[in-house]
Structures are given as C-alpha cells and as structure tokens.
Amino acid sequence: MIAPPPSGPVLYPPELSLKLLTDMLRIRRLEEKSAEMYGAGKIRGFLHLYIGEEAVATAAIHALAREDNVVATYREHGHALLRGVPMGAIMAEMYGKKEGCSRGRGGSMHLFDKAARLYGGNAIVGGGLPLAVGLALADRMQKIARVNACFFGDGAVAEGVFHESMNLAQLWRLPVAFFCENNLYAMGTALARYESQIDLCVKAASFGMAALKADGMDVVASHEAAKQACAHVRSGKGPIFVEFQTYRFRAHSMFDAELYREKSEVEEWKTRGPIHTFTARLKAQGDLTEEQFLAIDAAVMKEVGEAVQFAEAGTWEPVEDLAKDVYTLP
C-alpha cells in the first residue's frame, strides 16, 4: 500500500511555493512536449521522462547554490533546466542541433553545461557517482566550499560502483550529497526483485554515512530533506545520502511497453502526483488561485513553445566537425 497523497499546510512564503510549483510545471510541460516531438520524429534515440518525479529535482536543486556542482543521470532534463540551462538549449540538444547545450553531440541523455556546473547527463547507471566523489575531492584539496550533488536512481544501488563510491566519500569525508531518486524500478525490474535489502538508507548506514528518507512526491518534504542534507555537507560533516521515494508515471523510455507493472499501480501513484497535490494544498490555504495557476501554466507553455522554435531554428553541426573535440587541440 502506498502512502496517502501529500497534504497539510505549506509553511513557505508564497513566493517560494510558487517558484517550486512553477519549476515542477516547467519540467512537466517540457517533457510532455518532448514526448510529442519524439512522436513527431524530431527527437530520436532514447528519451527517458521524469514525469511524476518532478518534486525531487525541484526540491533538491532549490536547496543548492549557484556554485554547487551537479552530476545527473540520463533522466536529467529537469535537473538541467532548474540548474539554469535554457529550455531552448535543452530542446535543441534533444533535436541534435548545434545550438544544444552539448552542441547536439549528446542528445537527451547527455546534457552538459559548464556555466550551470552540470557535469552530465551520464547514461551508464552509477557512472556519475565516482565523478561526484572526484569533484568533491578536488574541492577539498583546493579548499573550495561546495556541495557536490549526485543524482542517481535506485537501480544504481545494485552497482558495485555505488558501494565503492559511498565508501570513498565517507572514508575521506568528502562534500557529496548523494540524492537517490528511488522510483521503485530499475528499468522494468522492481526493487524487491533485485535487492535483498530494500531499505536503501540501511546501505548508507553500513558505511557510517548519514542518511535521510523523504517523500519524493511531496516537494515540501523533499525540499526540507535536501536543505538538511546540504547543510550537513556545508558544515563539513562529510557526505550524506538521501532517499527520495518517488514514482515514474511514464514508461522507462519510449521503447518500454510497461509489462512489468499494473496500470492500477500507476493510477494509484498518480493520486500522489507532486504537481496537483501541491497545487491543491496551496489553493486550500489561499496561496494560489486558479487564475494564478492558469497564468503560470500559460507562461510555462510560452517558454516551451519558444524552446521548440529555438530547436527548430537550430542548425546541424557540419560533418567536417565530426572529429572535433575527440582531443583538445594544441
């Protein structure tokens, strides 16, 4: 049985609440449009949607500072967007256009942005964890105070590199926030089918690492956990592990027929949807009107429309540049 939908008062100033809502909506609308553009043949390859999980990235990235580092997975459109990568550059990247944030080289799974301190877009499950550990090591050695936020899914927990990286981070007390987006499935295999221990915080505890669990469908609970995690890292206490319990409403990728879960399960989780439950809470306490919501949504849709136009107007990298940046030119 899943928990009841997030409810209760939101004790944030309305400006923050509306910002969180807007950002969740920006991710949702960007991805709905991405799915549409995939259907239209504009986006190819793998496309992994974050729909249903928006509260996690929104809550976590709002707890980070500009100068913090972010390492993400192949389900990272939302993370890139909230780190400040323009929506147009994300859409153009998915189109494979030169104006994309990785010059069209990476596509949906490999969004990079130096200015946003976004180090990918890693499509090898668990591949980002040691990178975050290394970035944190570099910060420590250069006496730079920074949180290195590393996002990964529950599937990564089964990889050896998860355990190796957790150990290294705790052993050296490195400033890493391990943000585990537990959506209960490693592609099409349920957590209980692949893990002997399904309480993921227990794994962190085995390294002596601080750990938190948060309702990943509740942007408030998630934001509080993320703030607490970042404060822990900033205080010099070393790394921390946060398990955000969330759920993916859409298929794993556009090739997934979803044979591994019941439709009723998905429908039940949708009642906990992070956007409509948060919207209802804000309305109930008078922090949001329907008119305001519609205005926010219209502004978001405008941003999405402009992103599509930007991608459509983008150009293809000339074939002559194919081998550019395999190595750095002298």
Binding site: P130, V133, G134, L135
Partner: peptide
C-alpha cells in the same frame, strides 16, 4: 572515476 572527477574539478 574519482580521478576523472578531480581532473574535471581542476
């Protein structure tokens, strides 16, 4: 991997 991250980090 941490070496790669540290190299990225300066």
């Amino acid at each position: 991997g941490a070496g790669i991250g540290a190299a990225l980090g300066g």
